[in-house]
Design a protein around this nucleic acid. Sequence first.
DNA 1: TAAATTTTTTCAAACGTTTGCATTCAATAT
DNA 2: ATATTGAATGCAAACGTTTGAAAAAATTTA
Lengths: 343, 343
Amino acid sequence: MNSTRPVTIKDIARRFRCSPSTVSRALNDHPAINEDTRKNIQEYAREVGYQRNEVSLSLLNKKTALLGVVVPTISNYYETAVIEGLHSVLQPMGYTLNICVTNENYLLEKEYLSRLLSNRAEGIFLSVSQETYDSGYYEHLENVIQRKTPLIFIDREYEDFETSRATVDDYHGAFAAVEHLINIGYKQIAHLKGPNGLTVSEQRFRGYKDCLQKHDMPVREELIINTNFQVESAIVPTKRLLDMALPPDAIFGVNDQVAIGAMRVVKDKGLRIPQDIGLVGFDNSPISAYIFPSLTTVSRPGRKIGMEASRLFLNQVNGSGDFLHESIVLPSELIIRESSLRF
Amino acid sequence: MNSTRPVTIKDIARRFRCSPSTVSRALNDHPAINEDTRKNIQEYAREVGYQRNEVSLSLLNKKTALLGVVVPTISNYYETAVIEGLHSVLQPMGYTLNICVTNENYLLEKEYLSRLLSNRAEGIFLSVSQETYDSGYYEHLENVIQRKTPLIFIDREYEDFETSRATVDDYHGAFAAVEHLINIGYKQIAHLKGPNGLTVSEQRFRGYKDCLQKHDMPVREELIINTNFQVESAIVPTKRLLDMALPPDAIFGVNDQVAIGAMRVVKDKGLRIPQDIGLVGFDNSPISAYIFPSLTTVSRPGRKIGMEASRLFLNQVNGSGDFLHESIVLPSELIIRESSLRF
DNA sequence: TAAATTTTTTCAAACGTTTGCATTCAATAT
DNA sequence: ATATTGAATGCAAACGTTTGAAAAAATTTA
């Protein structure tokens, strides 16, 4: 046969010719249990590797200590940092994090949420998938709301939804990045944008655009090209940029990956960074500091976001009255490095 | 109050003045239920957002569809690729992956395993933490074995344990990498090693050493320096290497991160890659192809490992007789790029 | 109209654990 | 000897769902 049935309290009770209650109490160090009984039972339990069935307890207490973390990917530095932050706060409190990766897929996201609800998750941290964004379908969230399961948006968010959220100030980060390029003296600043529709993409794009306008610089549509956040997706767009009649003298990538892709193309073209082309990324991923030239970037406090999101969740759980929805926006920080420092 | 009690089958039964059995059967399209009853109940259930309590079902059926994935970190490309692979096979089968990050911490690993067992996980994929390795304590695994919960080692493994495992052939990958450097003509090959004790570190180190010996090249102990897999941890060691009286003319990094860290130091020193110093990494992480110069590396099929591990698990679950433990070792592949191609 | 048949519904047990209350049993006090 | 106390244990219900068997209701047949 396949798996031996785990030892239950009843098994132990049978062994000691006593009732399950006694065993339960003995195992939980209940005072009203005879010292010897307690010792014997505990010893025996250890011996046979008894392990309390948390499933039955969950059913009984209607508490699962299960939390869902639904994210589009875990392949990026930022996402893993967020998870680490959540983890650092919630794990010690006994919560179990169920990390669900949607691969930017709407149906998967929907299924995961449904499963989490079925499994009676006590809270859900969500960064919506791109497909969800594109489609604009948010019915799958209604269910979560209806059940009053605390729902915390992390990173990407759906603006019209009334829930708590912890996000990074992408707008001002992008703004600062572009302003930095302008201050250095770059005139034609291109933007390798993220996929349309995503908050992060659009916020950073808005920061880019607003900053140019603030400084009375034209927003050249042809200098704005989409990528999908991956390194490879920056290659062709960057080539296109550099082949233009009036090519950019600086590139602001939607993230470090894209900036690194662009860096490669720029170098292959024989152009120097930062002398000929300035380069800025976003995320402050670990390697960004160690590539050559090191990459100017905007740091997002992923770990902090995770911790803040945890706090928001705990507030809701311990909250007295009705839910109090809170929005936390953490500042991002420009990290100036070699790739933009021409003199 | 905080969260409204979810609607149960009993609630619906009360509403329709029928028994819970009827409701259950109606919701499950049982044939012996009156068409009208079925329709009414289903409609009402949808209306009030009824969602089956999987916890109670788990208890009843002793099936949780829960799988544990216990890994030291999710910050590396490889780990996330493995998870993606597991996911791609197991998610469609209805399994839920509970991803647990141990941060290389023995106690956390122990607690996670214990929790998974308590939650009646049906299988556990494990890449042991470094502390576990260092300490040599494996009692926490005995519990898993005793309970006959399928345990599949991924990546790192404890050699003496009788379980299934899916690993990559680190040894031959490292061997091929070093042999490639030798063939190109590099004479003094250093190794930025991973932490001692870990299978991956030691296997790659062994590949490095054996290859040198096969080619009658001396193994210079001072050319072998430990790192912790992170970029930063390569900086000081590489500086030390380059400052030697007889410095290396090539560096084999235990992974891409470390190699990229080394690359930075080499460049800062004004040395050229690959002319003055050859460089090889391990993992074939996405950026390795796009940094400049692109990094020669060894590709590990993480996604495939995940899929193979899934297969091993499924074999155990569906296996007829006793467990059949299987070991899968997937080949790694040398990817030659610019950082080692001098002529 | 009663019996036989079919359709539909209910009962009860089960999964593993906890817990308020009741019970048992022995020891002590009267 | 009997009442009183105290300690130790057992009973039963509860959590939400499923399911075989029994029961009830509706329908058909004779």
